[in-house]
Design a protein around this nucleic acid. Structure first.
Lengths: 354, 354
DNA sequence: TGCCTGTAGTAAAGCGCTTAACTCTTCGTC
DNA sequence: GACGAAGAGTTAAGCGCTTTACTACAGGCA
């Protein structure tokens, strides 16, 4: 008597609906919903009938209908400005673990490509398509964050803005990481340090959190420990690494310990240094900071590194957004996770000569 | 008289709805829809009133409601088994261009992480959350493809299965690519070739299209041209490259020209070859096939390469799915795009000695 | 017997939007 | 001046699902 236009079950275009299942099982549509979601007790016999009907019709719940009714899509968008930055191995690992954790908690984590325009963020969040947002590659002063704060979509950052008050985030603990790297090298007798970081565009440079934070940490620690130090910057590619290596060797010949905070340039730096006759690790030790083992072994010799805690970042990042979504009143999740030391072949005791 | 529970406009949680806009503008909700979608003529005065109301209320259309009513989400999922494979620079470029093209055509392209399980594919498509699917990293015999064919969600492949009948796809033209690479090296006098490809797991090896196709192309062309040839395989990482390089040099000393179809191992191969005292490109020429310039320059010297047509693949891939979605009756889009030659420093004329 | 409680299931009101069908006006035309 | 067409809006029926009442019925207890 109702709904007759598409009762031709089976093929015919659209998929089976809850209505059809209900009809077939001889129950009300609500009961089907209760079975599907296990949201209310249903007598075993009835449940069995419903389940049979579902199987026969090949029923799958329609997420859009559900989303509309519940006011929740269970989709979390991971915003990654792929256009501007390369998708490092580190990021992949991060993404993977984030997705797994989201799935675990009943959400879908999808990578949503948007340019860096703040307005695109609004465009995404204001349409109610996603329940929450995870923002990567955050700048110290990031317009997208402002945009998100203005909206009502729950979000969390991977990385931090300058002022983290009122913002949920998960980031690498650069201070601790840099300090351990330096400590490691000091124990091997090094006293002349250099830091090479990534440009990340040109002027936005000082605005990139990891760079800014590592620099200040590097500055502080070397000063405290009375070490000689120099800081250099180059673009995020091997060729830039080659160039900066030449510069480093030419202008700062005393350097024996280098922290590279630029995964992509690191192999180039190694190549560049070797090309001017300096042996690694015999004459110079290099540690790649915040990198992944795969990338580090692109270099020859394989780089010793402080491995980025990508997996943990992914997991806690997702937890942070979901927490914001589900318990907006909870204290803000804010976490810092240090990189861990991974041995390679690019670090050695300083030469006793000199 | 109707809808009173949430007429408290402004803050208070949810966003403005079409209803509220209609009320405020003193028109029917349908009219608002016509304005928003420009789907029916509306008198200028009315339109103005509606637009004013929208602005005042900060209205943004709700995608979920729209999706439900239209039966379309305008979301396309790019399925990339990130868990198993690394996300190469090539893939990033692909992703970026695909996203841009989708946006251009009014769709959202999102990267949807799923494991390689075919069932997860169904789980995604059957819920009606996405209008179409773009599948990457396709195996010659891929269960996910079967799963997609069984469902009714439009899809296209980046890559190909063995049997491409009835399937929309876009892939690299490996035959042409391999042939040009060989031609290039032949013109420089090389006659002893080797192909090193990527393992891509262990047993699935022969099932990976790019590998299988390059191999057969390599085999055919070298035979045709009467060249000596050998094929090797190694995992997709630099260390594996180092090892296979040693093997290559030890067991096939005559080789002077190497095609590497394994972006990630390539830098390792270069390092490995050099480590046993063979100069590149003087003693041995290497071309990295289907790679990206960034990755190629990780090696020292920078690799000459056949650049993967990532951008084109992304664009045409998206076009292919959208075509399937919007004109299911059109002829199936099937396209092959060759890689293009990009000079590096790893290729030279063969030594006249020998 | 009557009343309360608990359990299984149903009816129906939305969620926010689209769209086919319909109602009024207002013109143009013969 | 009457009729039809075109233009501008409105009504209302969904899209597929969730969820809050509410009904029915059985059992427990006095």
């Amino acid at each position: 008597m109702k709904d007759c236009k598409r009762s031709h079950t089976g093929k015919g275009g659209s998929v089976a609906t809850m209505h059809e299942v209900a009809q077939r099982a001889g129950v009300s549509i609500a009961t089907v919903s209760f079975v599907v979601n296990d949201s209310k007790p249903v007598a075993p016999a009835t449940r069995a009938r419903v389940e049979a009907a579902m199987k026969e019709l090949g029923y799958h719940r329609n997420s859009v209908g559900r989303a509309l009714a519940r006011g929740r899509t269970y989709i979390i968008a991971l915003l990654y400005p792929a256009l501007q930055h390369s998708f490092s191995r580190t990021a992949v690992r991060f993404f993977t673990s984030a997705a797994a954790q989201a799935r675990e908690r009943g959400y879908n984590l999808v990578l949503w490509p948007i340019s860096n325009e703040a307005e695109q963020v609004t465009e995404l969040t204001s349409t109610g398509l996603v329940d929450g947002v995870l923002l990567m590659e955050v700048q110290l002063d990031d317009s997208r964050v402002g945009e998100l704060e203005r909206g009502k979509t729950p979000f969390a950052l991977i990385g931090r803005t300058q002022d983290t008050a009122g913002i949920a985030f998960v980031d690498i603990d650069f201070e601790t990481t840099i300090e351990s790297a330096i400590d490691h090298l000091m124990k091997l007798g090094h006293t002349n340090f250099a830091l090479v970081d990534g440009g990340y565009g040109s002027d936005a440079l000082s605005g990139y959190g990891p760079v800014a934070r590592s620099r200040s940490a590097f500055g502080e620690v070397t000063t405290q420990r009375g070490l000689s130090s120099v800081m250099l910057t180059c673009d995020e590619n091997p060729d830039a690494g080659r160039e900066i290596a030449a510069e480093l060797v030419a202008d700062h010949a005393e350097t024996t310990a280098v922290l590279v905070m630029n995964e992509l340039a690191a192999p180039g730096i190694v190549a560049g240094v070797k090309n001017v006759g300096i042996a690694i690790p015999d004459d110079m030790s290099i540690i790649s900071v915040g990198s992944s083992a795969d990338m580090a072994s692109m270099a020859d010799p394989q780089l010793t590194l402080m491995t980025s805690p990508s997996t943990e970042l992914g997991r806690s990042g997702v937890d942070a957004v979901i927490d914001r979504i589900e318990n907006p009143l909870n204290p803000l999740p804010q976490a810092l996770i240090p990189c861990t030391f991974t041995a390679g072949r690019s670090v050695a005791r300083v030469r006793s000569s000199s």
